[in-house]
Design a protein around this nucleic acid. Structure first.
Lengths: 229, 229, 229, 229
DNA sequence: TCATAAACGAGACGGTACGTCGAGTCTTCGG
DNA sequence: CCGAAGACTCGACGTACCGTCTCGTTTATGA
């Protein structure tokens, strides 16, 4: 899940004209040290004890930080976790992405010309990610929280989900342009046809989440259920 | 969402050979009146104020019941809500199912011989259900909670989700037998190919959930993404 | 602490004309077995875990009795304990008092003709009783409860305390008649002059409660604080 | 009931060498406002509704304070009431004691040279205090609770009872030195000879608590029960 | 001698309060 | 003036008992 820098919470600009508005804290004086410590503590606690048992108080204590320092910069523990996770994703992507200069917004699915092969490799990677406990716990928690809290859900979707979906859509558009995919199908729907079943099985644990499943998914999404003559 | 009898919580068999252990309350003395009142209160509160703001205390107060009466029979508010929802679904199904003799386990998807048409009508109904606020709030809450709490998730899945998925699978098997669907495809995967995208869009609110979407989903799930000559 | 039969709680007659009043249970059908079991359980629990931690529920469980059987016959756990204690005292007195025919109301302090000696022996016995943990815990509890709850206090006083005080008063009157005590002093006040300090030291644990203390008390109560020529 | 400074709960020294352990709250940050409000609420509730019906929850609500703020500083409602009562006594003494410089530890019983007269006046004052409902209810409650709970009893005794008893003992010693009292008698026993009967009658309500009773008590405690020639 | 009405054991019920936990706010102090 | 520390109010938690109320099951006369 490659992701941008994410300097802080994905905040709407919020008129940062006057830097001394009464409520808004001065971000330039912010302690980077505390921010990192909070992220680390949040991710560690969620992994170790689960999201439900993780508390703001616990994160603060673990991070060696005052509670107010958390509340000053985030509205809820879910928001902390979201940022922590974005940060983790960004760092991971940076490592994986090679040189520091690589702009994650330029990231794209591989395009070898063979749509099926490309999708298989990407879905297999997604399967691996969803099976990685390091990602599983926070993602589940964020998805759950987001499904209930619409605002957080919007952030979660736009910051984590959408970029990924866009990559799929773009690859499919390319395939359509290359005559490898039916141009009549909406790329968004096509994307969901691939990602939806995967997430469904992951979220509800209705079956094993394996590479074989990813392969089968790609095959039938491309060929459809209709019998071939 | 057609549903079985669901007499109470989906209890694990538990081998009640011995006259019951020490802590277990005597279910035969249970107050039906209280049980109903708790269900009604739980559903009402979740609809009115949302799952997060709903509390066991609140449910008890609204139901005119002691808190202990809830804790005696359920381990958590999520479990209460699950049973309440199952009860609601059962009652709804009973009404809809016509004569009292109708066994919900006999429920099946329509089979007019036209697979696409049948799937369209069912997915459209599912879309309507997911858009109905009466079902939306509790389902979201249960899905969220279940995604975090594995035990509850298992119950949620087996009691609510699985029965529905089985109906799809059965219809698809019938279609395969009738030569209307590729016999090579796993009916479970086929089911997920239809239901997964729908749930994905619903859960993450990544797009409008309409009848048109349901129709498109059916079409492309059946035909696949591969261009037709 | 010698005491009468105490068939049950010291109940005011309460117009027992019609034996079939609506609320009053039929005492003749009462289970003696349960009554004893409740007394035993109550005394045991108070001794073992203290009065505060003793609960009606606990007494019932220990006695193998339904809660209602307690509430049917007593208004509170303090009342149960009071009756239990009266029963204990009665049984103890019966054993000590020799033949079964001895009427406890006939009990009297010894009168050897030597007032000081008689008082010493009785106060020493009282000291022993107050030091006996079998009596200490319930007596403290009843005194405490009675000091707060006036109705129970009245019962406690009239059933346990008064009879004892009356014995003192009678012995002192006898001494006055025999010219061994100042006839001008109110026997009640004289009694309190002896018993008050003892109880005070016992209740507040302001000093050791010994035979020597009892002796000193008698001496100075009789002789007064005024210096002798 | 004259009383010392009593800055807060009568805390055992506790050797605060180390910068304080883990669980102990920082007393220097304590809210004086809350402390006062809790005292006022506790005393008011005990007076109005009685000790038994007074609850920690009720005190917190009436004081406009979180329950935790009570539990942070006191272990039980009895401890709260004890401190509240000590505080009340301290304030009362301060008012009565005239100038702010008056050290309550310097307090002493009057010494006019006439022991009998001095004792009469003090016991009459004690009678008035015990009859004052403002003191009666809390004192009863504390005495009761203290008689059952040894730790609280120790605090109650040492903080409220002992100082008063010491005053008596000191006055009696002075009388002994002046040849007005038998030097053979233990001043503590002499004190109890006066205070014990008073408390006994008060606690058990075995008779009217009047000035006349106080006077008679003094007379017979001094003169003894032995007939005068 | 048995029928029947009660007292009984058991324990679920509506409640109240408990003592604890954490949320989010506010205050104090140190760097 | 940010940040740590943590006390504050508030609200819910899950538990323990209260005293009341059914439930069958003894039991013990009195018809």
């Amino acid at each position: 899940m490659p992701e941008p820098k994410a300097p802080a919470v994905l905040q709407v600009p919020q008129t940062p004209k006057t830097p001394t508005a009464s409520k808004t804290p001065d971000a330039s004086r912010r302690s980077e040290r505390s921010r990192r410590a909070i992220f680390d503590a949040a991710l560690a606690l969620v992994s170790e004890t689960g999201y439900a048992k993780t508390t703001v108080e616990g994160i603060a204590a673990r991070a060696g930080v005052g509670k107010q320092t958390i509340y000053r910069w985030w509205p809820s523990k879910a928001a902390v976790l979201l940022d922590a996770f974005l940060d983790l994703a960004a760092r991971t992507a940076e490592e994986a992405g090679g040189e520091a200069g690589a702009d994650p917004r330029e990231a794209a699915l591989p395009d070898t010309g063979d749509l099926a092969a490309d999708l298989r490799s990407v879905l297999r990677a997604t399967v691996d990610e969803l099976n990685d406990p390091r990602y599983d716990a926070p993602t589940r928690a964020l998805a759950a929280e987001g499904s209930t809290d619409p605002e957080l859900g919007a952030r979660f979707t736009s910051a984590l989900l959408e970029p990924q979906l866009r990559l799929f859509a773009r690859r499919i558009e390319a395939a359509q342009a290359a005559g490898q995919a039916d141009p009549a199908v909406d790329p968004r729907l096509a994307t969901e046809l691939l990602v939806g079943p995967l997430h469904h099985r992951w979220l509800h644990r209705t079956g094993p989440l394996t590479h074989a499943y990813a392969d089968a998914l790609v095959e039938h999404a491309l060929r459809g259920l209709t019998p071939r003559p």
